[in-house]
Design a protein around this nucleic acid. Structure first.
Lengths: 341, 341
DNA sequence: AGTAGCCGCTAAACTGATTTAGCAGAGCAT
DNA sequence: ATGCTCTGCTAAATCAGTTTAGCGGCTACT
């Protein structure tokens, strides 16, 4: 990989100048007194030799590597990771940086190892990402340099990037209110564990708060709220069946995420009910499946790319102390309509 | 990030030896004649100082970085990428390597940029990954060092890792044959473009070949094969509706991927038909959705983690000239049964 | 006695950049 | 003639490792 590349010394020699001069010209150093002609000669020589600086040598001296560590708990398990990474990648490229990616798999040994590997490579900063929005404690080892939390907060008040789940909650509720749904709105996906333990989830509580705020402001109360042990299709399915067994059938349901909504769709189809004519559905995440359902599921999108991008921006360009809340846009599809009655 | 770390000189000083001695001991150099006691002293000193070598300095001399470039066309768009990356990450960690990830987005300028960024950082090798199994041409610039193609082949006969789609095709067909399906098996997802242009897909043709092989060996012919412009749920839905409109209803369908199968499920549900009692379904990919469907979809899994892992192994440990075909295991769920009649 | 070889170790060169300190010459004022 | 500043440039140090060449001292052999 990359043998016999031209070095700065080669460029200098060809330009008939010293390495110092060549270095200064190529780095565009201000306040140097090198002649216009010297500039020309260096640029020409570099061009002719196809010179590219050896970054190992440079970082040895400058202690900068133009490399960012992207440390996450899990990249593969969740399909959301891709968006975070892509956003980060884009923003990094725009700033001439590159991403060193590792995964801890929630394992302390792996984490230790990953962090050492990053520090050994002198990364310029660390993006510490969680795949579920939550509160976590970052390992002390990385606190020596810039750190940005992505999809997470920490007790240390480190800069962080989060989706604006609370606002999304309001959006979701408002969407139903605007269509005329009032007191027959049900919610699927209550879960104590997620709501009460910030180390498990920050999204659950925030989404719920947003929903309650918007409904409360309109003087509306939820018809009922179904518990779900996990936010998976099978739990949405079970919850929906329970709901359909009750005397009053809701005109609309809010699902805490799209996978639950998918389960609900399945139960509705089995019961011979049609979305949105018999019942409207709104949800959170904009999982790819939301677009594949029939009819398409209206949902507030987790802005993964934006978040990944923002994290890099904060890391490299600096950001304010406040958590950076990224809005979750509503993806309008056909699952919401005016209630029949 | 990582200021005031102990250097080799510090370790040597503390051990009362030269840098040379310390370096040799810490690298476990064979054939050196340093005393057991010297070894002890160096190890002790390194331990006490928490010494970790500066990799920039090391690679400057050795031209090795213990870093692998993972260049892909698209990481985010497809959720499959995560598996490839995770497998590669695991295998890299086991070999004390780390992954530098970039994305070209199919854009030549980005690709050029990404590759230069990697070469400037003196990566030890490149994994060039495509997110859809296909044939491609790798940029000449990376041919200077070790390269492994992941989920792709190239005209240059570079080492490559591919899923064994042909065998998966046989598996899928055999699964149906074993259940007693014979001459009422239909296929959804024929597509000239994918089948004929290797730069679009290698999977389509291989899967088809496998299916035809296994059926042919059993003296069975497909009832019919439906064209699909894309392999998306809506196309599977449309194809299934067409199939149901025909005089002979199939007892089983083979879908070229899980998203098509998902669409087929939707059409079946609408028609009031039940999987697997009225009709069996088998497919390819093991998309997360396969497990979420009711009943669960039997499908041959794209072994993404294995593939990512294998690519790193070949890159670092060497591999044979043959393409490495990774088997696609059948995930048995409930979508296949013995035909009713 | 001479020298060959081994043992245990080190000085110094080297990797390729950045950066500090400073030199030679010109121009100008005193 | 002397000193001063400014211009345009360079030698050498530096970063933190690895690697080459080789140095004394000892033993063993001829």
């Amino acid at each position: 990989m990359g043998r016999n590349r031209a070095t700065l010394a080669d460029v200098a020699r060809r330009a008939g100048l010293s390495k110092t001069a060549a270095s200064m010209v190529l780095n565009g150093r201000e306040g140097t007194r090198l002649s216009a002609e010297a500039h020309q000669r260096v640029f020409a020589a570099a061009e002719e030799l196809g010179y590219r600086p050896n970054l190992a040598a440079r970082s040895l001296r400058t202690r900068k590597t133009a490399t960012i560590a992207f440390v996450s708990d899990i990249v593969a398990t969740t399909r959301f990771a891709g968006g975070l990474i892509r956003g980060a990648l884009d923003a990094a490229r725009e700033r001439d940086h590159v991403l060193l990616i590792t995964e801890t798999q929630g394992d302390a040994t792996f984490e230790q190892y990953a962090i050492e590997a990053m520090l050994d490579r002198q990364v310029d900063g660390v993006i510490y990402a969680a795949m579920a929005t939550r509160r976590l404690t970052v390992p002390a080892a990385i606190l020596g340099g810039p750190v940005v939390l992505l999809n997470a907060t920490s007790p240390d008040d480190l800069p962080c990037v989060l989706p604006d789940d609370e606002r999304a909650g309001r959006t979701v509720a408002t969407t139903l209110l605007d269509q005329g749904h009032r007191d027959r709105i049900a919610l699927i996906g209550r879960n104590r564990l997620k709501e009460d333990d910030e180390e498990v989830s920050l999204a659950a509580r925030a989404r719920l708060r947003g929903v309650h705020q918007a409904l409360g402001a309109a003087g509306v109360e939820l018809l009922t709220e179904c518990f779900c042990a996990e936010w998976l299709p099978e739990h949405g399915y079970a919850a929906m069946r329970t709901l359909l067994g009750r005397p009053t059938r809701p005109t609309a349901i809010i699902c805490m995420n799209d996978r639950l909504a998918f389960g609900a769709y399945q139960a509705l189809a089995e019961a011979g009910l049609t979305v949105p004519d018999d019942l409207s559905v709104v949800s959170f995440d904009d999982d790819p499946i939301a677009a594949w359902l029939r009819p398409g599921l209206s949902t507030t999108a987790l802005p993964h790319e934006q978040m990944g991008r923002r994290a890099v921006e904060i890391l490299l360009d600096g950001g304010d102390a406040e958590p950076s809340l990224v809005p979750m846009p509503l993806r309008r599809r056909r699952s919401v309509a005016t209630p029949a009655g």
